[in-house]
Simulated assay, not measured.
Amino acid sequence: MTEQRWGDGHGTGLRDAGEQEAHAWRELVATARRTVADGLVVGTSGNVSVRVGDTVLVTPSGVPYDRLTPDDITGVGLDGRQVLGTLVPTSELPMHLAVYRTTDAGAVVHTHAVHATAVSTLVPELPLVHYMAGALGGPVRVAPYATYGTEELAGNMLRALAGRSGCLLQNHGTITYGATLDQAFDRTAQLEWMCRLWLTASSVPGLTPSLLSPEQLAEAQERLRGYGQRR
């Protein structure tokens, strides 16, 4: 297995970054590339960020993920002021910063996943077709449409995220957050899967998908808290 070589850098931010930021940037780029590989993003239509202390590392605007290099590290403070790199941060920076300012998020993933985006045009909330909605905090809401990159969209998103770790953005896509990049990505993938499941089930002529009750979801949420290996 050969080590992947990153191409020639575009920016100069790496020389100003500490070891922790450089490591986090590599993980961020790997996660961003994974969104493309898994079909959650086409081209540069999504964005990824991770928090390191009071610095938010974020994918730059309009740069294909397979072209990102260590020198392209892009970081801003929680006030939005650029503190690392020379490339312009993603246009969706207001959404990312709004999440970090109001939650304990360690990472944020935003995509234009096709099934989730389709659902966002149909309903104000993803129907409770599967108990994994509990892993996102409950029924997944749809944030009303607003122009991308605006504070209005960030505000709509925050209201839809209340008590949740993910939501749909009407006629736009998804946003999820987690303690780590892996958790944020996994929640995005799970949300897209649930949207695909509902669209598939609801497309059968003459039949309507059965949905979980709030009580059934609450019971599943309780069990999910103890799911996985204990260290």
Rank of each mutant, 00 (worst) to 15 (best):
R51S: 06
A160M: 01
L126S: 00
V36G: 06
Q183T: 15
M194Y: 01
V83N: 10
M95S: 10
R33V: 08
Y65K: 09
A37Y: 11
L161S: 03
T150C: 04
V119G: 04
Q221A: 11
G137Q: 02
P60N: 08
E151D: 14
L212G: 02
R196L: 15
D79V: 07
A189F: 12
T102C: 09
G166R: 09
R230C: 15
Q221T: 14
V58F: 01
A37I: 15
R225A: 13
A37D: 13
V50I: 10
P64L: 02
L191G: 06
L57G: 01
P70E: 09
G43C: 02
A22S: 15
L93S: 04
G18P: 08
H96G: 05
L169A: 02
L181R: 01
S203M: 09
L84N: 14
W25E: 07
A220E: 09
L78W: 09
R225F: 03
A98G: 06
M132Q: 12
A17C: 09
D79T: 09
D72I: 00
Q221F: 04
R26S: 14
D66K: 12
G7V: 08
H96Q: 05
S202H: 14
G80Q: 05
G137M: 00
R5E: 15
A189I: 06
T55K: 12
T86M: 08
G228M: 14
G106Y: 03
V204D: 11
D79S: 12
